[in-house]
Design a protein around this nucleic acid. Structure first.
Lengths: 190, 190
DNA sequence: CCGTTGAGCCTAACATCGTTAGGTTAACAC
DNA sequence: GTGTTAACCTAACGATGTTAGGCTCAACGG
């Protein structure tokens, strides 16, 4: 008579990451609670610890899940500079699609696309130059995403109103433009 | 007979921000608790709310306090490109000196040094170009600081070990180098 | 076919967090 | 003296991550 306490099918980690991502996307990181996630998947909070060691593992999984949406362009650009631009433009698009998760972007997870770094060394970059460029592109894209996703209410400024309005608008064009500049500059100094 | 419940001198906001910054620097952001801060200044947690509306205001104050350590070079460089480099190198130094506070770097507070942006427009940059450059320098420096402060334990990578070691080392040289490239590129496209 | 086992869930509780309600104390104004 | 008030207090609330311990039921070995 009592409704079954067991779910039809057992939970999977992927199911948890999927729902957790949806919660964070919809209502923000602070809404992503163990109890909230549990409710969403039809379970009690403590049960989640049968699948995850702690909340940190959940957040890691959410980042992996988010990054899994990254796709390389088809076909792959012949010019390596176009390829680099495409990779990080896609990285940027991924972060812009999940603005609430930007604070997690600094996390190191196992799915970072570092194969592009090796590719750079094969193009004639020294290890040092390749790492400098690779780190710079990552840093810039993440930094840009931090501000473009967190700048809703900024009005504190002694700027002329035109500049102030422009300054609180972080445009994809700006991101791509500077990204390209970084790539060209490292190409020139190779 | 009971020891006095009042402190000698009343608390000030600056005193709170100072101690809060010290706590975060020493033990991390998660150690910066209302109760911990209260204990540190010799008061109970609830008393803090006579000086601050909430914890967010505390964090804002900590960021302002941190940024207050930023100093412009003396004398100010004659070349505007050197000036820009100096401003953001100092910005970077400030963040590197407080790695635990990097997650707060995206916060908008009233003390952002946007006067440099106006200066750019006076040099002949259009409003759009000036903002593009200004945003790019901010984004890059903050992004770089995110990774250089959060990369202690990253070992997950399928990179050759030499590259992997180099990749987990985020050097100030790299930051300055790319910063300079961004400035030069915008100068050239003016 | 029956006993055991263990995966997958549960209830209950813990410490800690930010925050609020309401009381006490001491200094100062009139 | 008699308020008034700033600055502190104790006590508590609800929410959080997490742990301990128990139930249930399908699967499997004998």
């Amino acid at each position: 008579m009592v409704t079954s306490k067991k779910r039809g099918t057992p939970l999977t980690k992927d199911e948890l990451f999927e729902h957790a991502l949806a919660i964070a996307d919809a209502d923000g990181l602070e809404a992503l609670t163990m109890r909230r996630l549990a409710k969403e998947v039809g379970v009690e909070a403590a049960s989640l610890y049968h699948h995850l060691p702690n909340k940190d593992a959940l957040l890691d999984g959410v980042v992996v899940r988010m990054r899994s949406e990254i796709r390389l362009p088809e076909p792959i650009p012949a010019d390596w500079k176009d390829l680099m631009e495409a990779i990080f433009a896609e990285y940027r698009r991924n972060l812009a699609a999940h603005p609430n998760l930007v604070p997690l972007a600094g996390r190191r997870v196992e799915t970072d696309p570092d194969s592009g770094l090796i590719f750079l060394t094969q193009l004639g970059f020294s290890d040092d130059d390749a790492v400098d460029l690779w780190q710079s592109m990552i840093a810039f894209v993440v930094g840009f995403s931090v501000f473009s996703s967190a700048y809703a209410e900024s009005d504190v400024s002694d700027l002329p109103s035109g500049l102030a309005a422009r300054m609180s608008d972080w445009r994809d064009n700006t991101c791509i433009r500077t990204l390209r500049m970084i790539i060209e500059s490292y190409d020139a100094s190779r």
